[in-house]
Amino acid sequence: MNLVLAPWLEVVLRALAVLVAFLVLPLLVGQTEHKVMAHMQGRLGPMYAGGFHGWAQLVADGVKFVQKEDITPARADRQVFRLAPFVALIPYLVALAVIPLSPKVVGATVDASVVLVLAVIGVGIIGTLMAGWASANKYSLLGAMRAAAQLVSYELPMVLAVASVALAAGTLSLVGIGNAWNPWWLLWQLPGAVVFLVSALAELQRPPFDMPLADSEIVFGAFTEYTGLRFAFFLLAEYAGIVVMSLLFAVLFLGGWHGPFEPWVGWVWTLLKGFLVAVVVIWLRVSWPRMREDQLQRLAWVWLVPMALFQLAITAVGVVVFPR
C-alpha cells in the first residue's frame, strides 16, 4: 500500500473492511450451502427471494429474525443469556481480522497470528457454554456440555496439526507460513491437513460432528431457548466459523495466495481456495450421518491425536533433513 493515510483513518478503514468481509462472506457461504445442499439432494433450493435464484434468501431471513420477538426465558440467567451470542460471534470477527488473504491484504498484522487465531477460536465455545447454562433448560445444558466435551477433544489434534505447519515454516505468523509454503507441503503435511479439517469440522459443530445440536435428540442444543436476532447471531457465528476455518485451512495447507498470474491477485487465490474448502465442508454435511457421542470421542483420541503426533514427527524429520 503505497498510499499513506493518517494512522487513525487506516485503522478505521481496515476495521470497516474486516466488518464488511465478516458480514458478506458468511452469507455467501450460507447461500452456497442452501444451493449446493439443495442440488445434492435433487432440489432447487431458494428460488424467489431477490428474484434471481433466491440470491437474497439469507437477507430475507435476516429481516425475518429482526422482526421476531426477543424472548428471554423467565428462569434464565438474564445477563449471561443475553451476552452469550456476542461471546460466540466476536471471536470469529477477531480471527478474521488477522487471517491474511495475501501478505498485503490483511486486516491486522500480528506476529504470532497463528497463536492468536487458535486462542480466539477457543473462546467462541464459551458463548455456547454460557448459552447452555443460562437458558435453564436441560436440552440447552446437555448441548453445551457436549459442545464443551467436543471442543476439549478436538482442540488438541487441531493445535498439533497447526504446530506441525508452524514448525515446517519456522514461524508463528500466518503471513510467514503462507510465504514459506511450497507445493511439496501438500504431500508432506497431508496427515496434518486431514487432522485439521476433521477437527475444524468438529469445532464448528458441523455435521457429522453436530452432536451438540442434534436436533432429533436435544431440540437444538444450547440454542434451544434463543429467538430472533440472538439466534441469528449464533447462526452467523456458525457460518463465520466456516469462513474462518476455510481461510485458515487455505492459508496453512493450500498455500493461500500462491498461484499463477500476477502476485497482486494472490488474495483472489486465497478466497477461491477458502471457498473450495467451504464447499467441501458443506459436501460432508450433506453426505454423512451424525456421529454418536462415544464415536466422536473415540475418533479424536484414538485416531486424530496419534495422527497429529505422527505428522509432527514427520515434520520434525523433514525440517532437520532438508533445512531451508
Partner: peptide, 17 residues
C-alpha cells in the same frame, strides 16, 4: 456417500416449480 451426493449435484433436480 460423497460420490452419491456429488453425482446428484450434477444431475437435473426433481423439483416441480
Amino acid at each position: 456417500g460423497l460420490g452419491t451426493t456429488a453425482r446428484s449435484l450434477t444431475r437435473r433436480t426433481h423439483t416441480a416449480e
